[in-house]
Design a protein around this nucleic acid. Structure first.
Length: 275
DNA sequence: CATGACACCTGCTCGC
DNA sequence: TGCGAGCAGGTGTCAT
């Protein structure tokens, strides 16, 4: 489900709403989402802890606990973190897999339909080891035009797959990969090492631009993404390519074409604009 | 090492 | 209406 803008929106909402809250008790109804620590260890090591800070790294929501441990949540397709203040729908209740009961009476739910997402309780060293494999944050100054060009040069994979590779650049998933490549007028199937310097620099601008615009719209709700308060993201109205197969290209009017040729993921492009 | 195939899950939509 | 196939904002592992 969520890519950088959606995960950032969730992490910021949680920071505003539950930073400083103390955990009273933990309930786990679907233990298969837990990694590193199982239900008993999770309950023992998080009960009584204060959630000091909520932030994002790559597509992970990270909750820093007063104990030094971190709760690291990978939402994958359908995961979400929802704050219940007394009004949770039946559906939300049905898919609530882990619950942290807070001292103030509210509950933080880890919500999951497909249960592909994970909740990991990590010590500082486990966390460091885990994030060491991740690539550069595209909205930070370290993401330079030089770095992107080097990353593209170093692989023969399709450029779309390359920019979705979380060990290269983090946070870009299928929606924003399609959108950034459409904006940059680059064919997603081009081998990444065949992208020119000028194209790479344009792609660099468009990756930042599309992620920032989506963040300002609080993400894209194509199906079931919602923020921590349950509200949908607004960027779906601004999508030019993703989900618009068969509809006219907003730039030239030619019908957009869909394919699954790159890594089996849905790709939509304008064959006239993107080459 | 880079790359591709597959596994992990449930729910929704579409075609017969 | 029922039923099977295919698809969904992702990533970890394993074989080649």
């Amino acid at each position: 489900m969520p890519e950088l803008p959606e995960v950032e929106t969730i992490a910021r909402d949680l920071q505003a709403r539950i930073a400083g809250a103390k955990i009273r008790a933990v309930e786990v109804s679907k233990p298969d989402v837990l990694r590193v620590a199982g239900p008993k260890v999770l309950a023992r090591r998080t009960s009584g802890a204060t959630i000091q800070r909520s932030w994002r790294r790559a597509k992970l929501v990270v909750l820093d606990l007063s104990t030094g441990d971190r709760l690291v949540v990978s939402l994958r397709f359908t995961g979400n973190l929802l704050i219940e203040d007394g009004s949770l729908s039946d559906d939300d209740r049905k898919y609530s897999t882990v619950r942290w009961k807070l001292h103030d009476g509210r509950t933080l739910h880890y919500y999951e339909v497909r249960r592909l997402g994970t909740v990991s309780l990590m010590s500082p060293s486990q966390f460091e080891k885990y994030v060491a494999k991740l690539g550069v944050e595209p909205l930070e100054p370290a993401f330079t035009t030089d770095l992107l060009f080097r990353l593209l040069q170093s692989s023969r994979q399709a450029v779309k797959k390359r920019i979705m590779d979380q060990t290269a650049v983090v946070g870009i998933g299928n929606i924003y990969a399609n959108e950034a490549l459409w904006r940059a007028r680059i064919d997603p199937s081009r081998p990444s090492n065949k992208v020119t310097r000028a194209e790479s620099d344009q792609l660099h601008r468009d990756i930042i631009e599309v992620l920032e615009e989506a963040l300002n719209s609080r993400g894209t709700s194509f199906r079931d993404y919602r923020d921590a308060s349950g509200e949908p993201g607004d960027f779906v109205r601004r999508l030019a390519a993703y989900g618009r197969e068969g509809l006219p290209c907003p730039r030239c009017g030619k019908k957009l074409v869909g394919t699954h040729a790159i890594d089996g993921r849905a790709t939509v492009l304008c064959v006239r604009c993107q080459s």
